[in-house]
């Protein structure tokens, strides 16, 4: 088929399409669905009794704000990754707060290691296992994000899948920190950040199948 003939065929098929709203507006819609799920996840165990005391600690506030920022920026980036032409560096924005989060928790682990030694760290590592809660709270937000991302071009399905999982898991982790009474940084590192990393990796793998790339009409 000649390209000029193809253009005629495509122009004849120019049915009106529903324009994709900007990523920021779509992120707002996603948050409306996601925040109640995260709140419900946190409410299952109830708000931790020492929350007021923890909120007075700069480290706790910094880590939760970093997790929140990671979740919000990753959600924006996931929806942007489905739109052609948005510069790739903007999709890497969630890495900045994620690094702050990791650095703060990592520094806490270092202090704990100096104080308790390897055996002490290993004992505390297994105390509260948050993996099932973080995963359970993330499932619905990830699914909603995947459905939303499939409306886009889907040029980078693995990237979109990873960012969707990072967004949901970071927000779930921040939400659950308001109810989980874990004090050790090693617990946060393994069971919160570890679960976030695990889900992000799984999101990248599953994204290839779930977020379909644009095919020809």
């Amino acid at each position: 088929m000649k390209t000029e003939a193809l253009i005629e065929t495509l122009a004849a098929d120019a049915a009106p399409v529903r324009r994709l709203p900007p990523p920021s507006r779509r992120m707002g819609a996603w948050l409306l669905l996601t925040l109640p799920v995260v709140a419900a996840g946190a409410a299952v165990d109830g708000i931790r009794p020492d929350l007021a005391q923890r909120l007075a600690e700069a480290r706790f506030v910094l880590e939760q704000l970093a997790a929140l920022a990671t979740g919000l920026l990753a959600a924006w980036a996931a929806l942007s990754s489905a739109v052609p032409g948005i510069p790739p560096w903007r999709l890497a924005l969630p890495l900045a707060p994620a690094m702050v989060w990791l650095a703060s928790v990592g520094e806490g682990c270092w202090r704990e290691w100096l104080a308790w030694g390897a055996a002490g760290l290993a004992d505390r590592m297994w105390t509260p296992v948050c993996l099932p809660e973080v995963v359970a709270t993330s499932v619905v937000p990830i699914a909603v994000m995947v459905v939303m991302a499939r409306r886009g071009a889907g040029f980078h399905p693995a990237r979109t899948g990873a960012l969707a999982a990072l967004a949901a898991a970071s927000l779930a982790s921040a939400g659950l920190s308001l109810s989980h009474e874990e004090d050790a940084a090693v617990t946060a590192l393994v069971w919160h950040l570890g679960t976030v990393a695990l889900l992000t990796g799984l999101g990248a793998v599953a994204g290839r199948r779930l977020v379909r790339p644009a095919r020809f009409p």
Binding site: L10, V17, G152, A153
Partner: peptide
Amino acid sequence: VLLTLHAVRHTYD
């Protein structure tokens, strides 16, 4: 490219 442009034309803002 033209076919893909047609398929994803709703993504242009």
